[in-house]
Every structure is written in C-alpha cells, then in structure tokens.
Design a protein around this nucleic acid. Structure first.
Lengths: 191, 191
DNA sequence: CTGAATATGTCGTTTATCCAACACATTTAT
DNA sequence: ATAAATGTGTTGGATAAACGACATATTCAG
C-alpha cells in the first residue's frame, strides 16, 4: 500500500553518504567534518548531498536514528510482546548504542543525540502498544504512555551510565521492571 | 594534453563494480559469478555494467591489470632506470601478485591471466626503454626488446613457482640479471 | 528431446547526479 | 578592521545511470 519503490541510485547514494560520514566520524569530531569532506569520501557531488539531506545536522539525525534502529530492530521487533524480556533487550540496545557512540566523537551534541534516541523509543513503544490492544480506543492514553516509557527508559540508561556501570544493564533494568509493568497494567485497565 | 577528465560518476561506478567483483571473488570461483551478482552487490543496474565493460571477461582483465599495476606502480615507476634494482622489484611484484591471485579462485583462466601479466609487463618495459634513450630511432628494436623481456621475466616467475619457492624471489632473479643486462647493453649499442 | 528457468547483451525513454556559477556566512591571517 | 580563504546552500542545463522490454543463449530437470 502506497509503496512507491525508491530509485536504487537514491539508496546507493544515501548509503555512500552515511557510510562516509561514519568513516569520518572515526577520525574527526563532528564539528570538524564539512559537507565537502563527506562528499569527497563518498565520491559524489556536493550538490547531490543537498538533494538528500537538509544539512549536516539532518544527516547526523538520520545516521544516528538508523544505527539505533538497527540495534533495536534485530533484537526486539519480532517479540512484539511488551514484557520483561522486551524491556531488557531494548535497554541493552540503548546502552550498546551509547557505547558505540562514545567511540565516535560527537561531543557537544549530547542533547541532539538524546532527543533522537527518545523519539525512536517513543515510536517503538507506541507501535508495540497499538499492536497489543488492536482496538483504537485509548489512543491518547497510548501516546502518553509511549512518551513516559521512552523518557523513563532513556533516563534509566543515563543514570546507569553515570552511577552503576559495575552492574550489567540486564540487572539494572530488571529491578525496575515490576513497577513498569504494573503501571502498564493499571493504565490498560482504566482507560 | 588531450586530458578530458572523466565524469566522477564513471569513476565511482567502475570502482563499485571492480570492488564488488573482488569481494565476490573471495567467496566464489570466477565461473560461478554472474553479471547480476556483481551489479547487485555494487547496487547498480545491470545495463550500466555493459556501459562500462564489454562483458565479464573484459572486467576480469581490467581488474587484474589494475591490481598488477598497483603492485608495480608504487614499487617501480619512479626508479625509471632499467637496472638490477628495477628488475628485482618488478620480479617481486609479479610473484606477490600471483600469490594474491592464488587466494582468489580463477582456476581455468590461467592463460588469460598470463596474457594480462605479460601485456602489462611489455608496456612497462617499453616505456622504460623509451625513457632511457629519448631519441626515437631504434623504435622497432625497443618493441622487440620489450616483448622478449616481458616473456622472459614472466617465464622466470612461472619457473620460480614451479621449482624454487624455497629460494626468495630476489635471489632467484638476481642470478639471471647479469645476462639480461649484458644483453640489453648489446642491443642498445648495435641498433 | 522439450520446455522452464536463468543468464547475456541491447535499446529508447526517464530520472538522479554532475557541473559551474552564484550569493552569502564564517573563519583566519595580516 | 579588512582582505583572503573557506564553507554553506541554491539554481538551470548537461549527462550517466535506471528502467523495463526485448531477442537470444545457456543450463537443467522431467
């Protein structure tokens, strides 16, 4: 439905740009990377860059979103149940993602990165909630729930990094899960 | 002079095709690689392949030529003198190249490969001979000399592989060099 | 052998990419 | 403070690459 398959040149060019950007991110900080650097590495014209991305920040967003999604998709999307196991693997995906980020240097863009992670999480939680009760009442409640879950689990990952890296992510999030799930059940019943 | 710089799309596409071909060569034998395989890996249209290459054999030739040239160029081209040192490094380049080939699987195409190596060698020797005596008399003699040198040094590499891999390439070719150089001097004087 | 499936090459039309020139910020050196 | 150099973002006209349809091998199972 509404699937107009995109030109392979578009896919290829986007891949070239994103791969080049990640390659450069290993060597330079984000603030030192220019559009010309990227397009040279990717062997494409600078104008072509702007055909695909608003600017370099737009590229950053899309690359991060995609990398995060790859971390999440493969681990979670099939197990559509929003249960303990799902929360654990989502939490692990986030901490993994942040670990891979700390190698690349994006200092000064922590806020942007945080927003991106949160937005992706919100989307995922929302989809999973929809899948779980297929009726379309409680729409608004699901949206708010997704927002709160995304902030909550993201915040947990921040706190984990700050304080508790000695504990493995699994254990850390596990202790909070009963509360999350009870909260979820409560929401489901009363709306 | 007569340098019409080629469209970057052409360079990029050729690189994509060649890289994909080498990638596939690590996994499959040459005879099992189809044009579709290559173009899929390279993310280009099959028709585009034929815009750049006659067919898959043409591609094989060009890839091998290029790999061989990379081996040779960096090692030799600057030292334009056709002396002992040059012969040794050319010989080493050939044996290196053949070693890298034996990993990739091109069984059944030894003849093609041999021809490609020889043609490249002939070209290189010819250029070096021209550089050495800038007068343009003795044209024919230089061409014949290049032919004989290319066959000779290629043949030496074949024999080395067959019999004497215990000796390092340097030593193997070194023993023949006096005769080669004397022959060269003789040719130079009498033509 | 026979047909089905897969691979090779080619061609006219459509489209993504290139180019080079432009106005405008931002940075760097004098 | 100013000039030179470098980076950003946009445009219209030129071209490589995509599409998909075609004819023709080659491979392979029944």
């Amino acid at each position: 439905m509404s699937e107009t398959k995109t030109d392979p040149r578009v896919l290829r060019t986007r891949k070239l740009i994103m791969d080049s950007f990640m390659e450069l991110s290993d060597k330079k900080e984000f603030k030192d990377i220019t559009v010309k650097d990227i397009t040279t590495e990717a062997m494409i014209n600078r104008a072509t860059f702007y055909y695909h991305f608003e600017d370099i920040y737009d590229l950053l967003e899309k690359v991060l979103s995609e990398v995060l999604l790859i971390n999440l998709d493969s681990e979670v999307y099939q197990k559509s149940e929003l249960n303990e196991e799902a929360f654990i693997s989502i939490f692990k995906a986030i901490t993994n993602f942040q670990k891979s980020l700390s190698n690349r240097c994006h200092r000064g863009y922590e806020d942007t990165i945080a927003r991106i992670i949160r937005e992706q999480l919100e989307l995922i939680f929302y989809k999973m909630l929809v899948k779980q009760h297929s009726t379309d009442d409680g729409e608004k409640a699901r949206m708010v729930t997704a927002v709160m879950l995304s902030w909550g689990i993201y915040g947990a990952s921040v706190e984990w990094r700050r304080n508790s890296q000695t504990i493995v992510p699994e254990e850390y999030i596990k202790s909070a899960i009963p509360y999350i799930l009870n909260g979820l059940n409560y929401t489901n019943k009363t709306v």
